[in-house]
Simulated assay, not measured.
Amino acid sequence: MSAPTLTAPALPAAAAPRIDGLRIALWAVLLGLALFFLAPLYVMLSTSLKGMDEIRQGSLLAMPFSPNFAAWAKAWSGACTGTDCSGLKPFFWNSVLMVVPAVLITTALGAINGYVLTKWRFRGSELMFALMLFGVFMPLQVVLLPMSQVLGWLGLASSIWGLTLVHILCGLSSTTLFFRNYYAGLPDELIKAALLDGAGFWRIFWRIVLPLSGPILVVTFIWQFTQIWNDFLFGVVFSDAGTKPITVGLNNLANTSSVVKEYNVDMAAAMIAGLPTLFVYIVAGKYFVRGLTAGAVKG
């Protein structure tokens, strides 16, 4: 008698992917919105790569026929901003000298403030945080006159270091808010365990709290860099001819009258001014969103 043969059960055929009309419509809307918001960037970039003859004869949305970086070179080192024809180069480096220390110092002070206000609370700490929070919502125009007086007393008026100090003081409330909300979600048991092991204030901060602060550090760095680099009000008020940041230089370049308006140079200058922040968001944009989400959940 032959042994019965075992047959494997037939597997159901893979279902064909179903085209969801609602999903297609959603993607179409999102793609349309993306193209709409990217259109100005495309116009700026394409115009900066064209010559003036091509700009006059062609369409605004037409791609450059023979791309070249002559307008970029002129915007960087040859365009006139008023009577000075050295381009955006000195303004760019003024902004770098101002942004780097301002971002580092505001981030460090905000981290320490958030650490103290959440893990080392004292009598009146909540009131102090509430008072610091006013700085987030205070109109910047309110501080122009008193800040000018303070910079004059300190001998820092119309200098890069004076402008850096202004951004440090005005950004401290925002960085404190970020770190305070984030550190409120860290377990207090970590601090208590470290205290039992004999760790002090700074040792706990450096060894325990700061290594857990990666997401909020990225958020603060990007936020402060963008706010300070793109600032125009403080730059035009608290600087002189040799210390103006790139936003003021770009404004002066665009408003400098000449016989022929060179739109390609203006667009190239705008791209140069915006490239640092664009680069930061492209490289670290996903970490910015993650850090904001983490801070919102923990806060």
Rank of each mutant, 00 (worst) to 15 (best):
D188Q: 14
T175A: 01
W153V: 03
E189Y: 02
R123D: 07
L133P: 12
F122I: 01
V142Q: 13
P187Y: 15
L190Q: 13
P139D: 02
W120S: 04
N181V: 06
T175Y: 00
T164H: 05
N181P: 00
L177Y: 12
E189A: 10
Y183G: 12
Y115L: 12
W153A: 04
M132Y: 03
L131A: 14
M128C: 13
I168P: 11
W153T: 02
L145S: 06
L151E: 00
I112N: 08
L190W: 15
G135L: 08
F178V: 03
P146V: 05
L154E: 06
C170A: 08
T164R: 06
Q141Y: 11
P187N: 14
A130P: 00
L196S: 14
L133I: 11
L163Y: 01
W161N: 04
L186R: 07
A111E: 06
E126R: 14
G114F: 02
Y182E: 09
G171V: 01
G198L: 01
G124Q: 10
L117F: 13
V143F: 03
L190F: 15
R180H: 11
F178L: 13
S159Q: 03
V166F: 01
S159V: 00
N181A: 15
G155D: 11
I191S: 04
A157T: 14
V166E: 00
G152V: 09
L133C: 14
L144Y: 04
G171Y: 04
F122E: 12
E126F: 10
S148K: 10
G155Q: 04
L127N: 10
A194N: 15
S148A: 08
H167A: 06
N181F: 08
A130Y: 09
G114A: 02
L169N: 05
K192A: 15
V143T: 15
E126W: 07
V136E: 00
S148Y: 11
W153E: 05
I191E: 13
F129H: 11
P139C: 02
Q141D: 13
P146Y: 10
